[in-house]
Amino acid sequence: MNDISYQRFYVGTKFFIHAPPFLGRRYKETGGYISKRLARIQPPFVDAEPWQHSIYYFWWEFLRRHEGYKDCCARGGAGRYKKLYADFGDVHAYETEDFWSWWTEKLDNGWKRGEFLFAEPAARQMAVQGKVLNTQPDDMLVVSIPLEVRTPQLVKKLRSLLDEHKVQVAAARNKSRALYPVAARVRLSTLHQTLAVWDIWNEDKHHKYKYEQAELAKIPVNRVVNGETVDGLKRAGLRYHDVEQEVRRRQNMAFRRYLTAAEDYIDNVGKGHFPLRNKL
């Protein structure tokens, strides 16, 4: 494990800035998800399992595509990625359907792996400050509380202070202090599409054109060219080669974009960052 204090989770409820994986328990009466966060998430793909409605699931999947980390797992955690292995463990010891087992695996420190890696540290508690230092961070306000004021008035004033500093408050609450913070906001459906492109490319790169692989990956592209479509021209018995070539060009470009993104994500996930693109 990385050398950090295990006191991270000893106080308060475990909290994730991004929705963690859920088993997907439902109300018997309505069939709706009990978790309000899960109910608000757009499924990344058709028939996705509840625990796949999370960026942390895709973090795990992209790490499984990293060849260097795969070699590290095969060697029992030895080599270049041994520090990352100490935290994430052997992700190849599980099949996709066993992701939940990896996420909930108990570690030597008594915590579940997913919580250790991605949960926020315990919230700092209100305390009396001896003095204000020049090194006071931007995400903390030092408030002087007159003890003779009654509690309802104190609460009202504190809420007013937070409203006055709402920009600072919002910035602090959106800044992750997890051991492995999510690097960027990317739609789960986009991550799923990117993963599909990577898998199809590695399976068929020597046997199919990119536009054919784009079809297999079901990448959506605009198929209307100057108001015409291939199917429409075929039905009318007209030439459609130029329109078809333009659609294939668009498919090739879209496939290359997703493939480049997949390469970036896999490269950076091996460095402990996800989902992160490389700068051009």
Rank of each mutant, 00 (worst) to 15 (best):
Y265W: 14
V132W: 13
A262E: 05
Q52P: 02
W100F: 14
V182A: 03
G77M: 10
L179W: 11
H273P: 00
P275V: 15
H53K: 01
R177Q: 08
R256A: 06
Y180D: 00
Y265I: 04
R177K: 10
F88T: 01
D87S: 09
E228A: 10
R249D: 11
E67L: 13
L195I: 02
I266D: 00
G270E: 02
G110D: 02
N268E: 04
E61R: 15
W111G: 00
V143M: 11
A123N: 03
L84T: 04
Y6N: 03
K205N: 02
L38G: 06
D264L: 03
H206F: 14
Y211W: 14
L154P: 00
L161W: 11
H53Q: 05
S5H: 07
K157I: 04
D204M: 07
W59A: 12
F22N: 01
S35A: 08
V269M: 07
S35P: 10
L141Q: 06
A236Q: 14
E95D: 08
R113I: 06
R248E: 10
G24P: 01
W111V: 01
R159C: 11
V128Y: 05
L191I: 06
I41F: 06
E95W: 08
Y57L: 13
T135I: 02
A172S: 12
Y27P: 01
R64G: 05
V149G: 01
S35H: 09
L195D: 00
R159D: 12
V132H: 03
H18M: 04
K166H: 10
R64C: 06
A122H: 09
L133Y: 03
G32N: 07
E95K: 05
H53W: 15
A74E: 15
Y94F: 14
V186P: 01
L107F: 04
K166Q: 14
D242A: 08
H207P: 00
K28Y: 12
T190G: 01
Y209K: 05
L276E: 00
R75C: 12
M253C: 00
E148S: 08
R249K: 02
A39E: 05
K82Y: 04
K234Y: 12
S35Q: 04
Q129Y: 13
V225S: 05
G76I: 04
K28T: 06
V230C: 07
V142N: 11
P275L: 15
F15I: 08
R248P: 00
Y258Q: 04
Y27Q: 03
G114A: 13
L158S: 05
T229G: 07
K131Y: 11
L158W: 15
V155H: 07
F118Y: 09
D3L: 08
